[in-house]
Design a protein around this nucleic acid. Sequence first.
DNA 1: ATTATAAATAGAATAATTCTAATTTGAGTG
DNA 2: CACTCAAATTAGAATTATTCTATTTATAAT
Lengths: 128, 128
Amino acid sequence: MRYENIILEIINASTNHMTAEQIFFKLKKMYPSVVLATIYNNLNNLYQQGKIRKISLEGCPDRYDKNTRHDHLICSSCGKLSDVYLSDITAELEKQIGFKIDGYDLKVQYICPECRRAQNNNLSKNES
Amino acid sequence: MRYENIILEIINASTNHMTAEQIFFKLKKMYPSVVLATIYNNLNNLYQQGKIRKISLEGCPDRYDKNTRHDHLICSSCGKLSDVYLSDITAELEKQIGFKIDGYDLKVQYICPECRRAQNNNLSKNES
DNA sequence: ATTATAAATAGAATAATTCTAATTTGAGTG
DNA sequence: CACTCAAATTAGAATTATTCTATTTATAAT
């Protein structure tokens, strides 16, 4: 896989969570002949090798993410996705489930500061 | 929404996690004129009202689930999804994040007993 | 240099979901 | 009861993400 390492680097370097298409546009700048299907092939390989994570969210294309231990915050209002580093609960989960587990995926829903501010502004407007 | 309550009952009554299409076939038996788009309309409404949960998994259609506090186990080998009732970590998450959260979604990857057994059988075959 | 293998390309195909327009339903009103 | 209006349903087209297939290209091995 000629592009595998470059794609992996793009994902690891990025702080946001890119779709296949975003990665495609980035790669296309360096290798104009590259095609979206190739990105999907490479992403699937990387994912199966456990080198990247795949985040599936409702109503939008899958996003690809570096495979370091971290969790995700999702704003219930604007949908923005961001990383958060919470303590590892693997041991606790294994204790409760009674089985060895391979990993877990934790998405926390909240209202991000910007949306919270916007909501408060609207509230005060309505109240006045 | 004429079908909303029936769809909600179907989801709440079901122990597995149904796709829109599965719900559609079930409803079609009672109301033969019903159409898949109607199911999607109703499911989106129910979801926005917070009456049901939506589970998005890579490579398969979204699944709809009752909205009671519970978590999910996914077999990394066969993909089977099942419910698991783990202790609520909301308070702990809020403490770590430092914000009020609206909820969370925890998916635990493991190898289900059947797949584990199958793997062990293959292993012993290869070893013999 | 030749062959074999694997990966990339192009573009069609598929599958899930949403959208649009037309129709039906049901509630409320005169 | 007939009429009107709004909302929900239907039908089917459209969209979008992703996969698949066949062909071409690149890479590695002989």
